[in-house]
Amino acid sequence: MKPLLKNSSILLAVILLVALTLPLYAGEYYIHIGVMVLFYAYMAVAWNILGGYAGQHSLGHSLFMGIGAYTSTYLFSVMGITPWLGMWVGGALAGVMGLFVGYLCFRYGLKGPYFALVTIALAEAAVYIATNAEGIGGAQGLSVAWTGNAPEMMQFNGKGGYYYVILVMTVAAIVLSTWIIRRRFGYQLLAVRENEDAAEALGVDTLRVKVQASIISAMLTALGGTFFAQYFTYINPRNVFGEGPSIQILLFAIIGGLGTVWGPVVGALVLVPVAELSRGWLGGSFSGAHILLYGTVMVLVMLFMPNGIVGLYEKIRQRIQNRNEKSEVA
């Protein structure tokens, strides 16, 4: 057990070092792939707090991403307020929304597919509300005005600046997610996921912890929404509130391993580069290629390794360990 732990901290240090220095030697295209890996890892970690730890699978997390993206972009483009501030306003609004959605759903005992359906319906409703709200650009959406290389406005020449922003966000999210799972709150969430009635019987205020997870997850997702808007400089109702982003948010958590700290990160790390590269190679002739890949991997993972990549790794490690113990006994 001990050497394994040591190995993984060395691995972690190497990964962090590579991640920190990537923009120094990689070209713009590879930095872009790095940004995408980190962005989806960040979103998956955020989703995982409600979806993985608490076991409440939202299929409409784009609702929160959209709130974050629209709030900061509106404040920036119309009132000139820096996204560094706007993202927290968006986060707060999304937190209130997370409280509202969470309380409403969990108060009435919605679970499993029913909770998933409500979240889809809410996100879809948001698409249509945004489409019809001319004040925030309607169907056309909003563009993020370019103010030059202005780090104070979260705008950078080249992709390196964005890369470091999302790197810091992702590391912070992983730290938060690790911290949560090691605390009483984390154990309570896991208890709710494993057996809600038993958790309740043991004195866990299940409604409270689920709503708290919903708020935290919503806020983090909204912060990611602001980053998305700044990086792509354009948002519209479909590309931030739609079903597409909702699925991409949870995809990597599912594939990497639900409910673990590292699952969402591993999922994004393994799959996003493949998808982005295939998108680059196949280009316009095959525009759905990366989503096709995601769908196929999702089906295969559900069929053959429902606990994701991290789950599979744990299983193999367990087996090797068991074998070693057996041979020691013999």
Partner: peptide, 15 residues
């Protein structure tokens, strides 16, 4: 898992 599998199917069919 069933939901995720059928969501995966829908992505495959759509694309």
């Amino acid at each position: 898992n069933q939901i995720m599998l059928t969501v995966g199917l829908s992505l495959i069919m759509q694309n």
